[in-house]
Nucleic acid binder design. Sequence first.
RNA 1: GCCGCCAUAGCUCAGCUGGUUAGAGCGCUAGAUUGUGGAUCUAGAGGUCCCCCGUUCGAUCCGGGGUGGCGGUACCA
Length: 495
Amino acid sequence: MNDQKKIQRASAKLPRGLADRGPAEIAATEKMLAAIRKSYELYGFEAVETPFIEYTEALGKFLPDLDRPNEGVFSFKDDDEAWLSLRYDLTAPLARYVAENYDKLPKPYRSYRAGYVFRNEKPGPGRFRQFMQFDADTVGSASVAADAEMCMMAADTLEALGIKRGDYVIKVNNRKVLDGVLEVIGLSGEENAGRRMTVLRAIDKLDRLGLEGVRLLLGPGRKDESGDFTKGAGLAAEQIDRVEAYVTAPGMGALETSFAESALARQGLEELAEIAALAGAGGYGTDRVRIDPSVVRGLEYYTGPVFEAELTFEVTGEDGAPVRFGSIGGGGRYDGLVGRFRGENVPATGFSIGVSRLFSALKAIRSPLVDGSALRGPVVVLVLDKGETARYQRFVAELRSAGIAAELYLGSSGMNAQLKYADKRGAVCAVIQGSNERDHVDGPQVTIRDLVVGAELAAATKDRADYVELRAKAQFSVPESGLVDAVGQVLARHT
RNA sequence: GCCGCCAUAGCUCAGCUGGUUAGAGCGCUAGAUUGUGGAUCUAGAGGUCCCCCGUUCGAUCCGGGGUGGCGGUACCA
């Protein structure tokens, strides 16, 4: 019988890659979102919200040959057999929204939105299957100024979040330049599509694997420390040298000379030069917005400039090993995405912040923005005599009427446990009334116990007698009519 | 997906060359200390030793297969 019960009991367990969030994290997230929102609005972006669910087709994640959605997106069938999916980013839904409301929207259309996105992938440290992004996009402008603005806004936003100048950098590249380089090493054409992908992926890994690792991935392939082998692009030595010359180029000038033969590369470099000039004119030096040839980003829809926001500082982790946070946001130009819904292409560019990942970074640098220790709980009114519950309830109501968060202790434990409870809730003070206070010669009294001061005093001694003497200093009694004022004063001490 | 490591109380971990009542510390609950959080003391609750199959008189321990976790790598729109 008992065995059967145990077997049938549901397991209280969250699927992997998902996380619950407590009050401290919720409060911190709200603060981060507020800071980002303020920054985006300062740049003239307006809010818009789209649902979590879209037609899989609208997200562009349908596998036509297999007649089902891409793994990697959470999908299910609607009543009419149409595939629906949870959004995996905020960009594809925006493209759908713009296309659906094209005639109504001002062009260029500048909007921001925050929300959870879902990816059915293997989770890792700092990687979840549900996580929050905060995006801003300009749709309907082909101007490089729109791209430059994204970079500058990204820099401003990170600083608004309390990340110091020098602790981050916005790295900029251009897909046209990358495509030009691929062209120059002879990888144009449909038959080389696969190798182009491999080469771009290899370049993207420069940060993590270093030049030697990238060369292996461009050539024969690379074996990682667990012994697993990654197939390379199989390029010839001179092609590899050419790519190496590209990713290690000392500056724009060098790139212009070595890849002058590609019109595409020349155009891309021109755009980059313009972004750098615009950023420079706005006062954003290369310490904040920097051209970096190794930035690649996603392979699917970017068509021009691409950006990546990277945190450059290192923090010592719990195990003593240095932790780098790396990329906490990115974006770029995607001129073809809205065009999937319309006959003509609509130029667009955007930037996205990974809020969840940024949160862990801000925690690591102990940013006051995410410091949960300031969280205060409600004033707790203790129940010493169950028969007087109505009276205690009246205290709570009075406090609430005065705008003070308060609660009646609703458990069944003794006074000791009630104070422990109040402490655990983060209450600034507790309201106590036993028979001593109630039957006082001067009329009914209440005792206000300052839990913050009490904790400080308790920490100062290990001796029981001292402790008993000291703790009396953390509390005082007032007539019942003075309850709200007295509590208000104690709260004022600790704001 | 691939490679490697791991799985015993809420947490961190002992334990047994295979033997019947599986432990510690911390945490949790209650009590004592004047009616007061800490400290101290006392008591208590909490376990399918991840699951299944096999070997064995007997498996938490040995073997096989799963599942889950961690790390690396791939993919990441």
